[in-house]
Design a binder for these strands. Structure first.
Lengths: 232, 232
DNA sequence: TGTACATCAGTGAACGCGCGTTCACTGATGTAC
DNA sequence: TGTACATCAGTGAACGCGCGTTCACTGATGTAC
């Protein structure tokens, strides 16, 4: 009846991932994790040498999984020579939203990612960089390819606009339709940011359409604008 | 030599605001706060009946201050009949960035706000709604006024794109130039999101120009697009 | 004006709980000879 | 093949620290008569 090492270790990782994602590092105790994994408290220290190393391992695993899933898709999107900028941006956002909102493990990724993005550790920041850098660099190159006239100094601004929308519209589905994950989003947030679609299929479809239309026009306007001459 | 009640209470609020903003609720102890305020530990419970009520009071105060500062500016911006949409959006973002990035108290507001926005309490969510609702409603009305042809169902999508950019470009100055606030932003984040300007004046100027140009074009494209017919 | 009492801001020390972690232990599985 | 020992996953109980909170107290200020 004894479960082997992989079992215990992995059940701890799975339980910790779900709990850390839902409540954050400080609000979760190792006893919570051990109970959820149906494992002795001491096992956390036996396998991971402490709560913070367990957290680091959870973060590493969840981000690495997302990166593995995405780098291939990203290359495929960028490799296709026949696409225009709207196709690239639309494919990018659709791939991301499908992954994060449809897959079960995407939800944990999203919550841990947003926490870490806004007030995380240097190690977490480095993992996030390894995940996002190839994506945004790739999109930046696509922008330049389709708009060679754009001032290169403006590309990071464009990426910023895309990133801001990405975070908002990814979080948005969760904050308005978080019904299947435990902490129900506050009513006030639903009043402020009304639900944009009833079901996930339609949400993703419309989000991709909106972001693409909005952003492609935005990029064209920025690319066509006067280059910023006065800079240090 | 005895300091009067207002002194102690307010020094606690000020110290708590700075500490909660920097480190978050869980990572701050009442002893930290009392020490920073140069006040006895028991004073926290005497004046606020517990740590969480003190946090609530800090949040209430910082959001109310921001709201008071902004609602007037918002009305002025929207009341001016002669402005086009680019003026309204530009004025809105400039007012916000000036307030949050230039004022000392704006920094604390921003940090507490972002924490609360992404994983806060229902009470915090309600305060945030009271702050943001008038702003986004006002901008939504401005969009419709300048583009009466826009499908009303698309306005929340447009607001979402504006909100996403607002959060990103407000946080961005802090994450790349957080040198004057204590926790230095991780190097990795600076590689991923390179600094967009050397000094704050230029940053705000360029951010307003970029967001306005990008968003006005985006709004026009969305407004001109086919209305979404198939909906439930 | 003087006395007795009430109110209130603020204090110092202690309480008790829950946390992450440690430690001595068990029992199963390999390994050397 | 049998014996002695080493390794390792996993356990149960306890440790000690630090947390939020409580409590009895002080001393100053107001108030009634």
């Amino acid at each position: 009846m004894t479960t082997d090492a992989r079992d215990t270790r992995e059940r701890l990782l799975d339980a910790a991932e779900a709990l850390f994602a839902d409540r954050g590092y400080d609000a979760v105790t190792v006893r919570d994790i051990a109970a959820a994994a149906e494992v002795n408290v001491a096992a956390v220290n036996y396998h991971f040498h402490g709560k913070d190393r367990l957290y680091g391992e959870v973060l590493r695993r969840v981000i690495a999984a997302k990166r593995d899933r995405h780098l291939d898709a990203m290359e495929t999107i960028l490799a296709d020579e026949g696409q225009d900028l709207a196709d690239v941006i639309g494919d990018f956002f659709r791939t991301h939203l499908d992954d994060v909102l449809r897959r079960e493990e995407g939800g944990n990724f999203l919550k841990l990612f947003v926490r870490e993005l806004h007030h995380g550790s240097p190690e977490g920041a480095e993992m996030i960089r390894e995940l996002l850098q190839p994506m945004w660099d790739g999109l930046g190159r696509a922008v330049i390819k389709h708009h060679p006239e754009v001032d290169p100094k403006l590309v990071p601004w464009i990426i910023g606009s895309l990133h801001g929308q990405l975070i908002h519209f990814t979080m948005r589905w969760r904050t308005t339709h978080g019904g299947d994950c435990h902490p129900t989003p506050p009513e006030a947030i639903r009043l402020l940011f009304p639900p944009l679609a009833d079901d996930l299929d339609r949400y993703i479809e419309r989000a991709v359409e909106h972001i693409t239309r909005f952003s492609v026009a935005g990029i064209e306007a920025v690319a066509a604008g006067k280059t910023v001459e006065e800079h240090s």
